[in-house]
Amino acid sequence: MDTQEIIRNQVTANPVVLYMKGSPKFPQCGFSGLAIQILQACGVKNLVTVDVLADPAIREGIKVFSNWPTVPQLYINGEFIGGSDIMRDLYSQGELQSLLEKATA
């Protein structure tokens, strides 16, 4: 299975997936830390995280998959939402919460 197939399977098999640097307990960059804080503030319980630092193929492959140059990247129900800045904006408008509620309902 190639990297693009692995990523496609990850984002479609799980309602909420965050590609990040590090882990939720130990994020390895401020943007990944912010993304986790936002998701925790939304009360997300069923979150799958993928540490891109653990797999160089995934780290590069996710940028190709989404056509987005940076990590973290959030996917809800297989749809690319964006990075931490977009997550913060959607959260402040209340939109992220409703997307997450629909995904985990």
Rank of each mutant, 00 (worst) to 15 (best):
P69N: 12
V52L: 01
P27A: 09
I81F: 02
P56H: 06
N67P: 00
K45A: 15
I58R: 01
G83Y: 02
I76F: 03
Q40F: 11
F65E: 03
G82C: 13
K21L: 02
D55W: 08
Q73K: 06
E79W: 00
L74V: 12
P56Y: 01
Q40W: 00
F80K: 05
S66W: 12
S66A: 15
L39T: 07
V64F: 13
Q28H: 04
L34Q: 14
G33K: 02
K21R: 14
V50T: 13
N77W: 00
W68T: 01
D51E: 01
V50I: 15
N46H: 13
G30R: 06
I81S: 07
K45L: 13
P72T: 13
P56R: 12
D51C: 01
Q73D: 04
A57D: 15
N46P: 03
E79M: 10
D51A: 01
P56N: 10
P69A: 08
G33Y: 00
A54D: 14
K25I: 04
K25L: 15
W68R: 02
D85S: 03
P72Y: 05
N46G: 04
L74A: 09
L74S: 09
E79L: 10
G33E: 05
P69M: 13
G61H: 09
G43Q: 10
K21E: 10
D55C: 13
G33P: 03
I38P: 09
S66C: 08
V48K: 15
N46Q: 14
G78I: 02
L39F: 02
P56V: 13
L53A: 10
D55E: 12
F65R: 04
Q37P: 04
D55S: 12
I36W: 02
V71I: 15
F80N: 11
W68I: 03
P27F: 04
K21M: 11
L53Y: 07
A54N: 09
G78P: 10
L39C: 13
T70L: 08
I62G: 00
G22H: 13
K45T: 15
R59P: 01
A57E: 15
G43Y: 11
G43I: 02
I76V: 15
S84Q: 08
Y75R: 04
L74P: 07
F31G: 10
G61K: 03
L53Q: 08
Y75H: 12
N77I: 00
T70R: 09
F31R: 07
V44E: 06
L34Y: 00
T70M: 08
G22Q: 07
Q40E: 15
G82K: 08
F31E: 12
T49L: 11
Q37G: 11
D85L: 02
L34E: 12
E79Y: 01
G78S: 05
